[in-house]
Computed example of a mutant assay.
Amino acid sequence: MTIITLTFVDSHLKTPVYFFFTNVSLEISFTSSCIPRYLYSIATGDRVIAYNASVIQVSFTDLCGVAEFFLLATMSYDCYVPVCKSLHSVTIMSNRVCRILIIFCWMAGLCVLIPPLSLGLNLKFCDSNKIDHFGCDAFPLLKISCSDTWLKEQMVIICAVLTLNMTLICVVLSYACIIKTILRFRSAQQRKKPFLTCSSHMRVVSITYGTCIFIYLNPTAKGEVTIKKVVSLLIFS
């Protein structure tokens, strides 16, 4: 909220990079879709969640999570433009282009979410109703369902693979061009500034992609989820 407020108040922060930072900061909706429920359960000891509430939680967390990958890919392009196209960066990353990219990120997240969510709404739970996870997520829900979940598992994996691959390719290509351009600089001081500018984004990309590849590219949801629970904490942190 501090980042969002400062970006709107300070006129010096009306730049594409801070515009994208503001939208990434909107992942407050990502954490707020589950963290308040966690705190409530810890404070009251009530660990029961209604079916409708679980569906809403899965929908919001997955939508914000998928949109974040596209935002990270867009931010990698925003890092690429000032380094590799410095003379045309203002024209390329205009306010109109930035708004279009942001709308695309959220619409892409919605398009990726709809197919697996529509298949998951007809799940039947006739045995266990205990979710072996901190919150409601796709694989923990599939694990306790007594329906045939093979198609749904494959749909989740396909959507995860497409999202990760498409966005990761954009990130890798952007940083490949950035590194290639930086290596052409003659002085170490000229090379240092672009690396410092991109380093924070690279760390976020590494943690986000690493944890989600580990969680969502497992071939089956019926397997062990204990390790996935621990790794998932990295996403919410």
Rank of each mutant, 00 (worst) to 15 (best):
L217H: 08
V171F: 10
K130L: 06
F125M: 06
L123E: 06
V171R: 04
K143T: 14
M155H: 07
K143I: 10
K180F: 09
W150N: 09
I131T: 13
V112M: 12
C198Q: 02
V112Y: 08
I131K: 13
M107A: 06
L162G: 11
V112S: 01
N165H: 08
Y209W: 14
C111P: 01
C136V: 13
I182C: 14
K192M: 04
V204C: 12
L110C: 14
F125W: 01
G120Y: 04
E153G: 14
R203Q: 08
I182A: 07
V161H: 07
T197M: 12
P219W: 12
L162N: 13
I215V: 09
M107F: 15
V112H: 00
Y175A: 00
Q189D: 10
L173R: 03
I131V: 15
G210F: 13
W106S: 04
I131E: 05
S174R: 02
Q190E: 10
C212R: 03
V156W: 03
C212A: 05
I178A: 00
T220L: 07
L162E: 14
A138N: 05
S187V: 05
K130H: 14
G135V: 06
P140M: 06
W150I: 10
H133G: 03
P140Y: 06
N218F: 04
Q154Y: 06
D127Y: 02
G120P: 01
R203D: 15
G210R: 05
S206T: 12
N218M: 15
H133A: 14
D137H: 05
A221V: 05
I207M: 07
N122W: 03
K130W: 00
G120E: 02
G109K: 00
E224V: 13
I207H: 08
C159E: 00
C146R: 09
Q154M: 11
N165K: 06
Y209T: 08
L110V: 15
T208S: 15
Y209S: 11
S199W: 12
T181K: 15
K193A: 06
Y209M: 02
C126P: 04
K192L: 14
A176N: 12
T208E: 08
R186W: 07
S118T: 10
F134Y: 13
D127R: 12
I179G: 01
C111F: 15
G210M: 04
T208G: 09
Y209Q: 09
L113Q: 10
F185M: 12
L141N: 11
F139I: 05
C177F: 03
I207Y: 04
M202P: 01
S200W: 10
I158K: 07
R191E: 01
S174W: 06
Q190N: 08
C136T: 14
S187C: 11
L113T: 09
F139C: 04
S206I: 13
S200F: 13
A138H: 03
R186I: 06
S118N: 01
V172M: 04
P219N: 10
I169W: 10
K222F: 05
I169T: 14
L168Q: 11
K192W: 07
H133L: 02
K192C: 10
C198N: 05
I179R: 00
F195S: 01
S128R: 06
C198R: 06
S174V: 08
A160N: 00
S174Y: 02
M202T: 08
L196D: 13
